[in-house]
Design a binder for these strands. Structure first.
Lengths: 248, 248
DNA sequence: CGACGCTTTGACACAACTCAACAACCGTGG
DNA sequence: CCACGGTTGTTGAGTTGTGTCAAAGCGTCG
């Protein structure tokens, strides 16, 4: 795997959707992401209940952050990909409220909070871009919550892949119609609040109605427009189709 | 309703669980919260899809922030209470991804983001306390997500009230065994991802097994320990009961 | 008084879960 | 080379938790 030039890291790609960056800002981002660490598939970087000592930026690979519940089941919160920040909350809360596990081999760089805060003073635009990215992640979590709470399994699954695709798009990891996706149906189940068996049935239905195929680690959209209609999908950055009504 | 002395505002009460504040910091918080605005029950302060122009701190009353879905259903994300910040994400994302509605008469103060950012420079401890509070809210949302995804209706409802109680506790709005709670069963349903009718059944069961009563706007815990066991509850600030296992 | 908002209950339907079995694919080791 | 266990995917049958529909009770308020 070729090492990316720092100026074109996934993170800077992502942030450039929000602000355009000058050389100093790009250098600062590059410095934040020096010395990547390689993690093997399956390794747990963060453990629920342990003290969070650092945050990380993902450089490449797929992971999942999840909560373990009393009865042994787990709820996957998100699948971090290149350009995403993980574990920031754990640091601020001191104790980690969730775990992080690598689903493929993964490359990350550690950042100390002490590196981040001064950044807001020296590179305020970069700081606000990071805040924007964080808010965006939060909005995705909230969307996820609404999905699990109020959408059917079919809608929910469709919505998930559309959102994932949009996230991958921002870091240049997908074309319009298909992308690589190393998740198992068990992973999907734990993310979507379903059983793995039901995920299988839902995926079959999505395939049969010719909207989307999930096969051999590859997701293919057959009719993105219809999929968006089915899922009630609105782009993450706020363009909504909903008529919010008016009266009390 | 007597106006609170600024030094004892819900927000400063909440933050004082994280840092102890000196006079300058308290004054700064007080300044942030001057000129409260009164909102009538039912008024919508933030509308999904509109441009988010400001954030607010709640002074008193109850509200709900929620997402509207395509089919008209809604998912309530959280019920902001005194001391909570609302709409911050909407400002940073420019377009609001959710709505906010007052469930009782409510008093809030507007804050411009331009007021917040310099605060991190002048009162860094206050800034980090605010970050902590924000992270804590995020952790609650994530918990909520796990609840809806993986807990049964009964566990989920129990968990919700325990968490709510802990939040109220931080701003001095509850005793150990009971608290005022103006939510309807419809509100609960939209928060818990259930139908109102099923919420009613669940509440009846919680009453029958003598764990919790929800009646006439009042929540009473009859056996908090048993309730925590049922819900698999861990305190928000990270003290967990879960044995995270060990092997791969 | 009637209208309305909220709660409560029952009967029934259905989405999603569980259990069980099997198929396909992998890497490993004999 | 093939046998093997482990992981992942697939399918069917039966169960159950939760949703839907319908109706009634009960406050409050105009």
């Amino acid at each position: 795997m070729p090492s990316l030039s720092p100026e074109n890291s996934p993170l800077s790609q992502k942030l450039s959707h929000f602000i355009s960056m000058d050389e100093g800002e790009l250098d600062c981002l590059a410095a934040l992401q020096s010395n990547p660490i390689r993690l093997e598939r399956g390794s747990e970087l963060i453990r629920q209940g342990e003290v969070g000592r650092f945050a990380c930026f993902m450089q490449s690979g797929w992971g999942c952050s999840f909560k373990l519940l009393q009865d042994g089941s787990r709820q996957i919160i998100t699948f971090p990909i290149a350009g995403d920040c993980i574990g920031m909350r754990s640091v601020l809360l001191r104790v980690s409220d969730h775990s992080f596990c690598a689903l493929t081999d993964v490359s990350v760089t550690r950042v100390e909070v002490s590196q981040i805060l001064p950044l807001f003073t020296r590179y305020p635009r970069l700081g606000s871009a990071l805040l924007w990215a964080t808010s965006r992640d939060e909005a995705i979590t909230v969307d996820h919550l609404a999905s699990i709470g109020r959408r059917t399994a079919l809608e929910r699954t469709a919505h998930f892949f559309l959102e994932l695709s949009e996230r991958l798009m921002m870091v240049g990891l997908t074309s319009e119609v298909e992308f690589h996706c190393p998740l198992t149906q068990y992973d999907l189940a734990d993310a979507l609040g379903l059983s793995a068996i039901h995920v299988n049935r839902v995926l079959r239905e999505l395939r049969e109605i010719k909207l989307l195929t999930f096969h051999e680690g590859k997701v293919t959209f057959h009719d993105k427009a219809a999929l968006k209609t089915l899922a009630g999908y609105e782009t993450i950055d706020g363009h909504t189709n909903i008529d919010t009504g008016s009266s009390t």
